[in-house]
Simulated scan of single mutants.
Amino acid sequence: MRQQAFLEKINPVRDKMYRLALRLLVSKEAAEDATQEVILKLWDRKYSVKDYTNIEAFAMTSTKNYCLDELKAKKNNNLRLVHQNYENKSLSLQRELELKDELHHIEIIVNELPEQQKIVFQLRDIEQLEFDEIIEITKMKPTAVRVALSRARKKIREKLTNEHNYGLTSG
């Protein structure tokens, strides 16, 4: 496989690889390094990469595994939710602060989730991957993926509801 053909297959996936690495490793520099390392590993296997039916799933799986290996090596269990979809210049300063505060609370809640739930939540709700791709990336059974996602969403919803109600319960 020539360099141009390889880049045509990898470039569309590069941003997703970076976002997943950023989610797992927290640091932008570490995420950039991880993305580059995985791309280099894929380049080393360029002749077998062309035989994969879903290069995106393979690249995402490789990125996930590389990042988890890095986390194990550093014994660092941080996982942050940083989502920058709220860059709308027409927002008032108060609304912008409210959104940042809400994202901070979601980040704290996500940090409390078990590792599998964090990864499934990231892949499905942030990266918007299909269940088949998530199953292939995580090597989990379909039922386990759906249960992990359901539990993650439920936990986030409960914590946010509790926080918005200031801990008050009705009844």
Results as ranks from 00 to 15, higher is better:
Lys159Cys: 07
Leu91Ser: 08
Glu56Gln: 15
Asp33Gln: 00
Ala30Glu: 03
Lys9Gln: 09
Leu93Gln: 15
Asp44Ser: 13
Asp44Tyr: 10
Tyr47Leu: 14
Leu99Ser: 10
Val147Ile: 11
Val110Leu: 12
Gly171Ala: 09
Lys154Pro: 05
Cys67Arg: 07
Val38Ile: 09
Ala152Trp: 00
Asp33Cys: 00
Ala148Glu: 01
Gly167Trp: 11
Tyr47Asn: 12
Glu98His: 07
Ile135His: 01
Leu22Phe: 06
Lys72His: 10
Thr169Leu: 15
Gln36Tyr: 03
His105Gln: 15
Lys64Met: 13
Ala30Arg: 05
Cys67Pro: 10
Asn78Val: 04
Leu103His: 08
Phe6Tyr: 11
Cys67Ser: 11
Glu32Asn: 10
Arg95Gly: 08
Asn77Gln: 06
Lys16Asp: 12
Lys50Trp: 06
Val49Ile: 14
Gln117Asn: 09
Thr61Asn: 10
Leu42Glu: 02
Ser48Val: 13
Asn111Arg: 15
Val110Ile: 13
Ile137Cys: 02
Ile55Asn: 06
Asp15Trp: 05
Val110His: 06
Ile134Lys: 03
Thr161Met: 14
Met17Glu: 00
Lys16Phe: 09
Asp51His: 14
Arg95Pro: 04
Ile156Glu: 10
Ile134Leu: 06
Lys154Asp: 08
Arg157Asn: 11
Asn111Gln: 15
Arg151Ala: 03
Ile119Phe: 04
Arg153Cys: 01
Leu81Phe: 13
Lys41Gly: 09
Lys100Val: 11
Glu133Lys: 07
Ala30Tyr: 00
Phe131Ile: 06
Lys159Pro: 03
Leu42Ile: 02
Arg14Phe: 03
Glu87Lys: 11
Glu70Leu: 13
Gln117Lys: 11
Ser150Pro: 02
Trp43Tyr: 12
Val120Arg: 00
His83Glu: 08
Ser150Thr: 08
Val49Leu: 12
Leu24Gln: 02
Asp125Trp: 04
Phe121Asn: 01
Leu71Trp: 00
Met1Ile: 09
Thr138Tyr: 00
Phe121Gly: 01
Asn78Gly: 08
Cys67Ala: 14
Glu98Met: 12
Gln116Gly: 04
Ser170Tyr: 14
Leu25Gln: 02
Phe121Cys: 01
Ala31Trp: 05
Glu115Gln: 12
Ser170Ala: 15
Gln36Glu: 08
Lys46Val: 05
Arg153Pro: 00
Arg23Ala: 13
Arg80Asn: 06
Glu115Ala: 08
Met17Asn: 00
Glu102Lys: 12
Arg14Thr: 09
Gln116Ile: 09
Met1Ala: 13
His164Ser: 12
Met60Cys: 11
Lys46Leu: 04
Leu160Ala: 07
Glu163Cys: 07
Glu115Lys: 03
Lys41Tyr: 07
Ala148Asn: 02
Met60Gln: 07
Ala31Tyr: 04
Tyr86His: 07
Ile126Lys: 06
Arg124Ala: 11
Lys141Trp: 02
Glu107Cys: 13
Leu168Cys: 14
Thr63Phe: 07
Arg146Tyr: 03
Gln4Met: 06
Lys28Leu: 03
Glu136His: 06
Thr35Glu: 05
His105Val: 14
